[in-house]
């Protein structure tokens, strides 16, 4: 065999009498490394947890038995007033629609922006190839800024309401989807673009007729996933003052006892909406990816 003819120096060759030693030694070494890594991981997690607990207002064990106090209090009060629930849920449908609208508009704006960004920063498709690195950094930055930062600053300038949340989520969506879209566009077949070039199509026409039809299913699937995420984000932003159902939830929570039926109504509404949207988009995405 080649290995024996050109193998290591004599003496460093595997011992023919004990064929498994080298393998066993390697396994043992691997196991020691794995064990050390595990010990390191466990001790880091444990000390991290202790630090976190130390800086927390209440400890883990102290709070554990109180974990169900608040839900129990809320649910029992809501149970007594369960007759109110349908009416209260209906009363909050308006703000729920606002929350969904914020998510939908920002997803739409984000998708449009991300589509442009993605085409402009994909090698082979870019209109101005020199701008590619610049646009990539811009997308990275847009993705890195949490929505809440932009939303809070915009609330100061524009006042409360849905617009700050819309802009904040749209910007973040642009960054997040821009990267994913461009990864999809990189794998697009360039032959249609060549064909369109040969008939003298402009850049816009090449993209619209040559690339968009190829990437549309994947882009749409990512956009739907983003919509799910954005519904949650817009509920959370409402909680910090950007309108919608999150804001109503905050007001009801601050009121405390006596309005827990309202809290439960909003919880239920939010939970049902998120579940329905998740289910619908799951189904639609499965269809998009598998193709009709």
């Amino acid at each position: 065999m080649v290995d024996i003819a050109f193998g290591p120096e004599p003496g460093k060759r595997p011992d023919a009498a004990a064929p498994g030693t080298a393998y066993l030694a390697a396994t043992r070494r691997k196991r020691i490394y794995g064990g050390l890594l595990l010990v390191f991981f466990v001790s880091t997690m444990a000390s991290g947890f202790l630090v976190a607990q130390d800086r927390n207002a209440g400890g883990f064990l102290d709070g554990l038995h109180r974990l169900d106090d608040f839900p129990a209090e809320v649910v029992s009060e809501a149970w007594e007033k369960s007759a109110n629930l349908p009416g209260l849920m209906w009363a909050h449908v308006g703000s729920l629609i606002e929350t969904i609208n914020i998510a939908a508009v920002s997803t739409l704006l984000g998708v449009l922006g991300a589509g442009f960004l993605a085409l402009l920063m994909t090698r082979g498709l870019a209109r101005w190839p020199r701008l590619i690195p610049v646009l990539r950094r811009v997308t990275d930055a847009l993705r890195a800024i949490p929505e809440i930062v932009i939303a809070l600053v915009l609330i100061y300038i524009l006042g409360g309401g849905p617009i700050p949340a819309m802009i904040a989520i749209a910007l973040h969506t642009m960054g997040a989807l821009g990267k994913l879209f461009s990864e999809v566009a990189e794998n697009a077949d360039l032959k249609p673009v060549e064909g369109l070039t040969s008939v003298g199509a402009s850049w816009g026409q090449k993209m619209w007729f040559g690339i968009i039809p190829q990437v549309a299913p994947n882009w749409l699937s990512y956009a739907l996933l983003r919509f799910e995420i954005n519904v949650r984000a817009s509920a959370i932003l409402g909680f910090v003052g950007a309108g919608g159902i999150g804001y109503e939830l905050k007001i009801a929570m601050q009121w405390g006892g006596g309005r827990y039926d309202q809290v439960v109504a909003i919880f239920l509404l939010l939970f049902l909406t998120i579940a329905v949207i998740d289910r619908l988009s799951d189904r639609w995405r499965a269809r998009l990816v598998q193709g009709n």
Partner: peptide, 27 residues
Amino acid sequence: DFVRGVDGLIWTIILSRAFGPGPMTGA
């Protein structure tokens, strides 16, 4: 499904009632 569907926001609220403010609650 339930844990995912009940949004992070709601878990955050419930947990901060039990454990008080701080990084452990967030974690």
